[in-house]
Design a protein around this nucleic acid. Structure first.
Lengths: 107, 107
DNA sequence: ATAAATACTTTGACAGACGAGGTATAATTG
DNA sequence: CAATTATACCTCGTCTGTCAAAGTATTTAT
């Protein structure tokens, strides 16, 4: 896809997912599509990465999930961000701003 | 030290080291001090991280090393950046600029 | 009919970060 | 002068996030 190695994005997966869920509940496939669109196809999350992140975030109480009531098409597991998740998002965003400065001053 | 989780810096260790070696040959301890100074103490590399990065970079041919000829004090292993290392540094820096944009557009 | 798209899941391997521990010398400090 | 701190390097083993590979199931397009 891109030359951007995964280690540069590593650690942001959770925040990216939380960011997507701020505006509305969503499901894995849609979230991944949104990521691709937002980055004009320059980046996409790997499925396994995404779903393991969902599991982790749910265990941490940052998101909750429920099955959609689609009568047609494949079933969808929707995710919803929690209060805790929103707080984590804000914290992560601040950390990102700081990390950005740190890295910029080092390279 | 800081709240910045290691995963946010992960993947930048190599580039940070290479950046330090651009101006002059240096050794582990000094490089780590320089990192702390450049970030006003907000970040320091863990020793184990640093030395495993040195090993990796040397295996990849991005740096070479030699023992300093100190007659006093602890012995120092100096590192020198290679042509390959310089090229990698430039590439990594570009990748960082792109990654920064990507992440900013996603969170 | 077949392929492609939608949608989710599990397993196992890998790589980078790092805690914990170790070695050795020189300088400082009480 | 003994003890501590600073300088300087190294190894081992563990942890965590990423991801390739493989699988299941449905719907739409060719």
């Amino acid at each position: 896809m891109v030359s951007i190695t995964s280690d540069l994005i590593r650690g942001h997966t959770d925040t990216i997912i939380l960011a997507q869920l701020l505006s509305k509940d969503s499901y894995g496939y849609e979230i991944n599509k949104a990521i691709q669109e937002k980055t004009q196809g320059r980046y996409e999350a790997k499925e396994a990465t995404l779903y393991s992140a969902f599991r982790r975030l749910e265990e941490l109480g940052m998101i909750t999930s429920y099955w959609g009531d689609e009568t047609t098409g494949a079933r969808r597991r929707y995710y919803s961000i929690t209060k805790l998740g929103k707080a984590a998002y804000e914290k992560n965003k601040e950390d990102w701003l700081e990390a950005k400065e740190l890295i910029d001053s080092l390279i």
